[in-house]
């Protein structure tokens, strides 16, 4: 029983991290049709923001939950204004440009911080279930992912900003004709996606070591989650994360983490063959 609980927590944790890591990417892709290949680097910058804040004596919770989204959100704003806005509607060019950006950021981070591994101390201690030790922070990550998902849903569904954003993404010309400043909406949406990426980087900073190149270990999972999910950002990510998270974690328990990630990829390839437009391309149509 205790073991089953532990396994259950691990599976839910895998799903929660997938949601957290993919959410920013899904917002930017689902709402703006922009595939941001620098997403992993946004996460890493969130991690660095958290470590810098901790080194300067900031409270660890503020350092991982408040500082990274603000810092990376601002960077996202600059990136949108400087690069992305020239490339709207040209998906391939956007991908390549954001890949260039990703390499550029890796280079900059290496130049500034060197290639040694940074970290943030674990703010929560573990607890025991029966004979097993469980990580309290993992439970926090699960709760926090759900909270973030809910907050983003409320923001997009019930606020004026969310309404303007959804309207602009559906029909930019019509929104502009009704007096919406669409360039501003695009910029804010991109910054929101970047801020979510930064937040994920901050939240995961205590569990993952941070090096300039660690973005690569996140983006594979984030991309297949977003692609598997399809056009509807929130429903898509949640359903795809449920599927891939359980498949990957089950394979991890059966073998090891390496084959867990292989199982995840295979599941994604098969899913793409059956549902080329992702899960929300066929089910949950019109959901957010």
């Amino acid at each position: 029983m205790a073991y089953a609980t532990i396994v259950g927590i691990e599976v839910v944790y895998a799903i929660a991290t997938l949601i957290l890591v993919s959410l920013g990417l899904a917002i930017i892709f689902g709402m703006m049709r922009v595939i941001n290949l620098a997403h992993g680097e946004f996460l890493v910058m969130g991690g660095y923001a958290a470590t810098i804040a901790v080194h300067h004596g900031v409270n660890v919770w503020i350092a991982i939950l408040i500082v990274p989204p603000i810092a990376v959100g601002l960077i996202g704003l600059v990136v949108e204004r400087a690069v992305i806005r020239f490339l709207y509607g040209r998906m391939v060019e956007t991908m390549l440009a954001s890949w260039g950006l990703s390499l550029l950021i890796v280079g900059l981070l290496t130049t500034i911080f060197g290639s040694s591994t940074e970290g943030v101390p674990m703010p929560l201690s573990g607890f025991t279930i029966g004979a097993y030790q469980a990580s309290g922070y993992n439970v926090f990550v699960i709760a926090f992912s759900l909270l973030t998902l809910g907050a983003v849903y409320v923001l997009l569904r019930f606020t004026r900003l969310g309404l303007l954003a959804r309207g602009t993404m559906q029909n930019a010309a019509m929104a502009a004709a009704l007096g919406v400043d669409t360039t501003k909406v695009y910029a804010v949406t991109f910054a929101l996606g970047a801020a979510l990426a930064g937040l994920a980087g901050g939240v995961l900073a205590p569990v993952a070591g941070i090096v300039p190149t660690s973005g690569g270990s996140y983006i594979g999972q984030a991309f297949i989650t977003v692609l598997g999910g399809g056009a509807a950002a929130l429903t898509g990510v949640t359903s795809a994360a449920l599927l891939f998270g359980s498949v990957g974690q089950a394979a991890t328990f059966a073998t090891n983490p390496v084959f867990g990630s292989v199982a995840l990829l295979l599941a994604a390839v098969v899913l793409i063959r059956i549902l080329p437009n992702g899960i929300t391309g066929r089910y949950f149509k019109g959901w957010l």
């Binding site: 440009a97 260039g100 390499l103 280079g107």
Partner: peptide, 9 residues
């Protein structure tokens, strides 16, 4: 990385 990122961009 910096150089090739800049070239690509």
């Amino acid at each position: 990385n910096l150089l090739f990122g800049a070239i690509l961009l």
